[in-house]
Amino acid sequence: MPQLSLLKSPASVQAAMDEFSHLGRMAFLKRYGFGKSRDYMVRNPRTGEPCDSKAIVGVAFGKQFPTQGALAAEDFSGGDMTVVPLLQALGFEVMRVGEDWSEDEVQSTVTDYFEMLRLEADGVAYNKSGHNETLRKQLRGRSKASVELKHQNISAVLNGMGLPFIQGYKPRGNSQLLLRKAVQDYVFRHSAVVSKIVDGLEEVKTPAQKNYSAVLVESPLMEERQKPVASTRSRLRLPRKFDYAARDEANRKLGRMGEDWVIGYEQHRLTEMGHPELFQSLEWISDTQGDGAGYDILSF
């Protein structure tokens, strides 16, 4: 049986990845009899595309030793003890499938989403698949489907904030805390841009199509109030103007910014304490469940 450790050529690995890109994932796997990687992908440094690690190693062996040919899937095992250290020793980046998205990845995805939303508001045609492909080159081996899911998560966050979202990405919940924080950060930091997007999306619709999603809120709950006791004392009344809607909006924005600041503080605090992994388990109660719990954020 061929020894996997004999594979020493980075050029052979690159050649296998080039063929992967040329044929496409499914055609490449079918040609050489491999299944999709369940645990690890290797990034093609030329394109940024993630490739199935075990299949790449098997085909690369045949590139280095043409007379022996590519290894079959049953000829060797993949994973932590074989394929991963081999590819890393040859200078290639290996990523775990389904790994949590980093802050840089999330920021890049949010920025790309709002760029598409801006184009949609301006009535400019754009290609979602093209954006997806370009974005994936900045990410750590993410698939097309995983990027689409992230875009749907962003739509869900915006929908929860009462803001318009890309119609081609229907809202899908269970978003990463880091993503929700990044979306809300973007909205607050680029309020003028977001306001223009909201106006643009309403302007391009007919009156019958408009839903005014950026201005409508849920009706307040009816509350029983005690009837005030009539006073015999006269009260001095001074005329003044109140913009209650503006005051309420300012209070809500201030509250949201305060919670956002606390979450940033908790991320820093947990990292400084040596437990950055706990941040992903932090719960933004007021964001996911609403008010009334007696607290807004559940941390460690």
Rank of each mutant, 00 (worst) to 15 (best):
S129E: 14
F188S: 11
M95G: 11
A60H: 00
E224C: 11
M95L: 14
T206G: 14
D112P: 00
G58L: 01
I154Q: 02
V106T: 15
R38Y: 05
Y32R: 00
E133S: 15
Q167C: 06
A72T: 02
D104L: 13
R233I: 11
F34M: 01
V194M: 15
S213K: 07
M95P: 12
P10S: 01
D104V: 10
F65E: 09
Q107S: 13
P10V: 00
A73K: 08
A27L: 10
K227G: 03
R235G: 08
Y186S: 07
R252V: 11
F65N: 04
V84A: 00
F20R: 03
Y244K: 10
D185S: 13
S143L: 07
Q68C: 10
F65L: 03
K205R: 08
G274F: 11
P10E: 05
E224V: 12
R172M: 09
I263R: 12
Q280F: 08
A73L: 04
L119W: 09
I285Y: 06
G173N: 08
I297H: 02
Q68G: 10
R140V: 03
G130Q: 12
V106A: 09
K181R: 15
K36L: 13
M95R: 15
E148F: 08
L117Y: 06
N251V: 06
Q152I: 03
T232Q: 13
F188W: 05
E266S: 05
G33L: 00
M273W: 04
P45W: 00
K150W: 09
T232M: 12
H275M: 04
M81W: 03
I285L: 02
E249Y: 00
I56L: 02
L201Y: 05
S231T: 08
L177R: 12
D248V: 14
V187Q: 09
P207A: 12
A11S: 13
K30P: 00
Q280E: 14
P66I: 10
V147H: 04
D248E: 15
Q152L: 03
D52M: 06
V83A: 02
R233H: 09
E120F: 04
G141A: 07
D104P: 05
S219V: 11
K137C: 08
N159V: 01
D243R: 10
S37G: 15
G33K: 02
Y169E: 05
R235N: 13
E259K: 00
V110F: 10
Q3M: 07
A156I: 01
T109Y: 09
L4N: 04
V97G: 08
Q3I: 05
S286V: 09
F20L: 13
S191R: 13
I263V: 15
L135I: 12
L135Q: 10
V193Y: 07
D75Q: 12
F76I: 01
R96D: 03
E218I: 08
V215N: 08
L90F: 03
R233P: 00
P220G: 11
E115R: 15
A70I: 00
Q226F: 12
E218W: 12
G168Q: 08
A182R: 15
K36S: 06
L139S: 08
Q64G: 03
G290W: 04
E103K: 13
A70E: 00
K144I: 11
L90S: 01
K144C: 06
L117G: 05
T288S: 12
V204G: 10
T47R: 07
M273D: 13
L6G: 02
L86F: 03
N44F: 02
G294V: 10
E105I: 04
I197D: 11
A89K: 13
I56D: 01
G255K: 14
